[in-house]
Simulated assay, not measured.
Amino acid sequence: MSAAGGTGAPPVALVAGASSGIGAAVARRLAARGSAVALVGRREAELKEVAESIRAAGGTALPLVLDLAEPGGPADAVAMTTAALGQVGLLVCSAGAIRLAAVHETEERHWERQLRVNLTVPFLLAREVLPGMRERGCGWVVNIGSGVGSEVVPGSGGYGVSKHAVHRLTELIHEENRDRGIRAVTVAPGWVSTRLAARPADLGVPEEEVLDAEDIADTVAWLLDRPARMSVGPLIRVEPSASRAAAGDAMTRHLNRSRAEGAGRAAEENR
């Protein structure tokens, strides 16, 4: 695997949001494929656990405890990765923030946080790595989007807006760099069983009908194996087969359930 799907050495990878869920699964898969992987996240203990699992399997991992939403965070992450492992040839943005609410119920700080983490951080990371990729004539930018970014889901708020915008960001990166040997793709999952998502049991959906993080890691690995002559995407949706596990419907039901529980708790407190 090469940075553009050829046959060279595996590229150095930087995975944002690598402490758990999709990011951790993708980081492990990339390391198993031979990439030296920088793991970026805020939760130190979990990040080190992922790094240790990669090293135990014979891979190379560099845990970087950083808040990418802070000023200078993305630039620091790329600089530290380059200094320790070499120039980044594969960027995976999996860090995410979600706060479900109707527009009129959304607090400004929650809106700003979601746009910062879900959209501005991928932009800043891409801006850091693209010049080197363009100079070398190869590279990958993989953003983890969301199926909700392609639908109008009431209550998805800043999350839905930011994921829709990151899909367009990826399209721009793809069009601006496709003739320079660089591939940019958004992998947009539906309902994946992670800590950010609703629990399937709470919504009456069997766990086995919902995607897991390894399904998304499989998709990223498949992308990287496409030949350099092939363009896939720049948006790839990965959905559960069962209609009752559709992400938009699940998100709406989860929000309605949370509202009902909140109203019930308020009624109890006011008695």
Rank of each mutant, 00 (worst) to 15 (best):
Val129Thr: 08
Lys48Met: 01
Cys93Pro: 00
Trp222Pro: 00
Ser231Phe: 09
Leu255His: 02
Ala84Thr: 11
Ala267Gly: 15
Pro206Met: 12
Pro189Thr: 06
Ala45Arg: 12
Ala221Pro: 02
Glu214Pro: 00
Leu255Val: 06
Ala242Gly: 04
Gly264Met: 08
Ala51Glu: 11
Val88His: 10
Arg237Lys: 08
Glu207Phe: 01
Gly158Phe: 02
Ala4Glu: 12
Thr219Val: 12
Ala247Arg: 04
Val92Tyr: 09
Val238Phe: 05
Arg259Glu: 15
Ala9Ser: 15
Pro240Thr: 10
Ala221Trp: 06
Ala32Cys: 02
Ala250His: 06
Glu208Cys: 04
Ile236Pro: 01
Asp212His: 10
Val26Ala: 07
Ala246His: 11
Leu130Ser: 03
Ala4Cys: 13
Leu169Gln: 08
Leu115Asn: 08
Glu175Gln: 13
Arg180Thr: 02
Pro122Asn: 07
Arg28Glu: 15
Ala4Gln: 13
Ser156Ala: 15
Pro63Val: 01
Ala201Met: 00
Ala56Cys: 00
Gly23Ala: 14
Glu70Met: 03
Ile236Met: 09
Ala263Glu: 15
Leu203His: 08
Arg134His: 02
Gly21Val: 06
Ser241Val: 11
Val148Arg: 05
Asn177Pro: 05
Gly181Asn: 08
Thr194Ser: 14
Ala250Val: 10
Leu47Ser: 07
Arg265Met: 12
Leu203Pro: 07
Asp218Glu: 15
Met230Pro: 00
Glu239Arg: 13
Ile236Trp: 04
Gly155Arg: 02
Thr60Gln: 14
Gln87Val: 09
His174Met: 07
Ala45Phe: 01
Gly157Arg: 11
Ala56Glu: 11
Arg55Glu: 15
Val129Asn: 06
Ser156His: 06
Thr82Tyr: 05
Ala198Phe: 09
Ala197Arg: 07
Ser162Leu: 05
Ala188Leu: 05
Leu91Thr: 03
Ser258His: 06
Glu214Asp: 14
Pro227Gly: 04
Ala45Asp: 12
Ala38Ile: 10
Glu209Asn: 03
Ala56Trp: 00
Arg113Gly: 00
Leu119Ala: 07
Gly8Pro: 05
His164Lys: 06
Ala197Glu: 13
Asp202Leu: 13
Asp212Thr: 13
Arg116Cys: 09
Ser156Gly: 05
Ala4Asn: 15
Ile182Cys: 02
Val205Leu: 09
Ala188Pro: 05
Ala79Leu: 03
Ser94Val: 02
